[in-house]
């Protein structure tokens, strides 16, 4: 599970899981515009680091930390909604 450190905001690392982002001239990952990497079913998942709430704690999650496990990544529109 993620470490107990704050991550400013959810951000893609700019690489797929298990790989380093390509170095480019457009600055640090924080400064770089979010690239519209897109996903391909059958291709590697885009990696990311994000803040998360887990069992009473604020933590951070990095997708690549779960390599070796199956991951079910579920997006939903909002807390306190109905469906």
């Amino acid at each position: 599970m993620g470490e107990k450190k704050a991550v400013g905001c959810a951000r893609p690392t700019g690489a797929v899981v298990g790989e380093q982002p390509k170095k480019d001239s457009s600055g640090t990952p924080e400064e770089r515009e979010v690239e519209e990497m897109g996903i391909t079913v059958g291709g590697k998942a885009p990696d990311f680091e994000a803040p998360a709430y887990f069992k009473g704690e604020f933590t951070s999650v990095k997708l690549a930390d779960y390599l070796g496990k199956w991951v079910l990544l579920c997006f939903y529109p909002g807390d306190f909604t109905f469906v």
Partner: peptide, 12 residues
């Protein structure tokens, strides 16, 4: 609502 199943190698 997007749901992605990712395998142990990181493949969707």
């Amino acid at each position: 609502r997007g749901r992605f199943l990712i395998d142990p190698d990181g493949v969707i």
